[in-house]
Design a protein around this nucleic acid. Structure first.
Length: 330
RNA sequence: GGCGCCAUGGCCAAGCGGUAAGGCAAAGGUCUGCAACACCUCUAUCCCCGGUCCGAUUCCGGGUGGCGCCU
């Protein structure tokens, strides 16, 4: 069909078993893993982000994990640049890049590419943003929405008047480039992805099952020293400085306990709740992709009538890959 | 056994005579450079019976259940 290189992507909600599957596939197919996770990029954020351990990595090379200070900012554009570089590097060595993670926007950015949208959030532009933010505080977000209507009615149409963050971004794009954000978006849609991406998604027929896994995993995180991890980051002032890392689930919830504002049980419950809600948002995000090959993790094998084992899941994924390759080469 | 208080959606909770705020959870959704973010949509006829009233979740009586105190 075409001669674009193949990239495999494993996606799904938190705690669905992506990482283990990705490692198994990397071993079977000669691949390396590119993490597609907005938080595992940070150093010192290990147990709370469920960052794979040395043991879990099983000698498979993981890219875009554990390389950035928690105080640093990071965007989906940065991700697109780095992930594509990593993919090209793996491909040049004859390996299969396997994207693995639950950050939908990052996967989008990888596939869509680094669009010509401007660095509206860098350098001197911060002044403009600060100005908009103070306008919002003094006069309300609606005023910003009205401003957006003037310069970019299409974006204003698509962004809810209450969504200050998105309104500001759209205004910034116009302010810095003179081109409406909606126009940038339109242009980026015409870019062709340089890879053949096979997306395999993990999902649960019984959501309660996933939720129970999430709860179990949170308890395990607490056992494994998440509190100390949060404490250490708090001491370093990370939560005041970092725009990205400070939003991480687990960290922001436990901070209340670390600072003596609530008890641990309450925070743990909040953390579970936040993770469940996050998983739901991830599922919503991924369902709009039309080309995901879903594996229902808690379904039964059609022949044996037994619930799929990890081996079964790996085999299904391998089959999907083989099918994808064979029709891709034709 | 006596006295008092309470009874509103899965949970918390306002209203106290004109036909039920809000928060949380659940569910559904949006998403193009902070995304583990931000944002949107959405769920009740007020414990039961009787009475007063044009009209009761709101007043009165009884019942049931819960809480507190007393003997």
């Amino acid at each position: 069909m075409n001669n674009k290189p193949t990239v495999l992507a494993i996606i799904g909600p938190t705690a669905s078993g992506k990482s283990a599957l990705a490692v198994a596939l990397a071993k079977a197919l000669g691949g390396e893993i590119i993490s597609c996770d907005s938080m595992q990029i940070y150093r010192e954020m290990n147990v709370g982000t469920a960052k794979p351990t040395e043991e879990e990595m099983q000698g498979i090379k993981h890219h875009l994990i554990d390389f950035l200070e928690p105080t640093s900012a990071f965007s989906c554009s940065d991700f697109a640049t780095l992930a594509r570089a990593a993919a090209d590097n793996i491909i040049s060595r004859g390996g299969l890049p396997i994207l693995c993670g639950g950050t939908g926007l990052y996967l989008d950015a990888f596939i869509r590419g680094n669009s010509p949208s401007p660095d509206a959030d860098k350098g001197a532009d911060l002044e403009y943003r600060a100005r908009l933010e103070s306008v919002a505080i003094e006069q309300g977000t609606i005023v910003l929405h009205e401003m957006l209507k003037e310069v970019d009615p299409d974006s204003a149409e698509n962004i809810h008047p209450n969504n200050q963050k998105r309104i500001i971004r759209a205004l910034e794009v116009y302010h810095n480039t003179g081109i409406p954000k909606s126009e940038h978006d339109r242009r980026s849609k015409s870019f062709e992805c340089p890879y053949n991406v096979l997306i395999i998604g993990l999902r649960f027929a019984d959501r309660e099952l996933l939720y129970r896994r999430i709860e179990k995993r949170v308890d395990l995180m607490i056992e494994n020293g998440l509190v100390d991890e949060v404490k250490a980051l708090d001491v370093k002032g990370v939560f005041e400085v970092s725009p990205t890392a400070s939003q991480a689930i687990g960290y922001k919830e436990l901070l209340a306990y670390v600072r003596g504002l609530t008890d641990l049980d309450t925070c743990t419950e909040e953390l579970k709740k936040a993770t469940r809600r996050y998983a739901k948002r991830q599922m919503t995000w991924f369902t709009r992709y039309e080309n995901i090959h879903w594996i229902t993790v808690d379904s039964a094998d059609s022949e044996t009538n037994k619930v799929l084992t990890f081996e079964d899941i790996v085999n299904i994924a391998k089959k999907l890959y083989a099918d994808f390759i064979s029709c891709g080469i034709i």
